[in-house]
Simulated assay, not measured.
Amino acid sequence: MTVSLERRTALVTGASSGLGIEFARELAARGAVLILAARSEAPMQALASELRAAGATVHVRCVDLADAVAREAFAAQLERDGLTVDVLVNNAGFGVFGPFADTEWERLDAMLAVDVVALTHLTRLFVPAMRSRGFGRVLQVASTGAFQPTPTYAAYAAAKSYVLQLSHALDVELRGTGVRCTVVSPGVTATQFFAVAGQRPTWYQRLTRMQASTVARQGVAAMLGGRSGIITGWANAVMAHATRLMPRGLSARVAGVLMRN
């Protein structure tokens, strides 16, 4: 059974670009009250104006999710403002491309702080209250990279594997409480991911690229339908599941070839 979002409040992290914008649009179209959270205010304000013009209620919050103190303060401020988070979309994150041994630690540290630590912390901050109220939905954004070791994206793929495993385990823990956790694993998506990561898209990435709006629509539908996980796009699903049949070493070598320009 698909859950209605009418009058439910949804928090979308990383709502200043890419998938975050599309998740917000999709949730607003389904009647949710939105809380947009990211570091960059101007893009969120522009998005908020667009969604308000269409009739949505939108709150904008600037927060550095890489900062643990800021995350705690953010959650506390939402409570003081009387904003109850019914739906958490943990979308904030980015990738780092390049040989692991040659990548600056500062970039890796920043990536892990958002992709792993912030996602885990925000989930821990909001899920207990959802459980107490008897309703909640969490949508975690992983990646098809979560299904295999990926040279030149070694730490990123490992981080997304963590998200995948955490999410499925949490969903089982929450069964019977009224709270569900869904993990969406997109493949290559038309966002600024490669520009931020520092990679020129390969032929394979250009061939399999999906639109962000399609990924967001499929992810939200899976969450509201009570699914524990979804890989967006049939080709991505075939590739992700096929890696389970390969030895890890071979899977890593195949991924390495596909990442080469």
Rank of each mutant, 00 (worst) to 15 (best):
D109M: 05
Q140R: 02
T202L: 01
G145A: 12
R209M: 14
A197W: 07
E173S: 06
S161R: 15
P186R: 10
A110I: 08
T150M: 13
R206N: 05
A76K: 06
L108W: 05
F147H: 15
V117N: 14
A92E: 10
R133K: 13
L174G: 03
V141M: 15
L207N: 03
K160M: 08
F194N: 10
A66V: 07
P151N: 06
S143K: 09
V188A: 13
V87I: 14
L83M: 14
W203D: 09
F135D: 08
P201M: 06
L65N: 02
L164A: 07
H121W: 03
S185W: 01
W105H: 12
A118D: 07
R131V: 14
G145S: 05
T84I: 04
A113W: 04
A197M: 03
T123A: 12
T182C: 15
L170M: 14
A155C: 08
F94A: 00
V138Y: 09
V188P: 10
V127G: 09
T84Q: 14
E72C: 05
M130C: 05
F147N: 08
A197P: 04
D109P: 00
L119M: 15
P186A: 01
T144D: 04
S185M: 11
P186V: 01
Q205F: 02
L207P: 05
A146H: 11
A197S: 05
L166M: 15
A158V: 02
T177F: 06
T191V: 00
A101C: 05
A195C: 02
L65A: 06
L166F: 15
A110L: 07
M111T: 06
R180N: 05
V114H: 11
R180L: 01
L207H: 12
P201L: 09
A118G: 10
Y162V: 06
T120S: 14
R175Q: 15
A92T: 02
H168C: 13
G93L: 02
A70M: 09
V127H: 06
A212D: 01
G93N: 07
P99K: 10
L78S: 11
L174M: 06
A169R: 12
A68R: 00
V196P: 01
A158E: 02
A212H: 00
L112I: 14
R107K: 15
V85T: 14
Q77P: 04
T208C: 04
A159R: 09
A154F: 03
F194E: 06
A157Y: 09
A212Q: 01
F194R: 02
F193P: 07
V96C: 05
L170D: 02
A101S: 12
L164D: 10
R200N: 08
N90H: 07
V183G: 02
S185T: 11
T191C: 01
G136R: 00
D171R: 14
V138E: 06
E79D: 14
R133Y: 10
D67E: 04
T177M: 03
T84H: 13
D115V: 15
G134F: 11
L164Q: 07
A66H: 03
G134R: 08
Q211L: 04
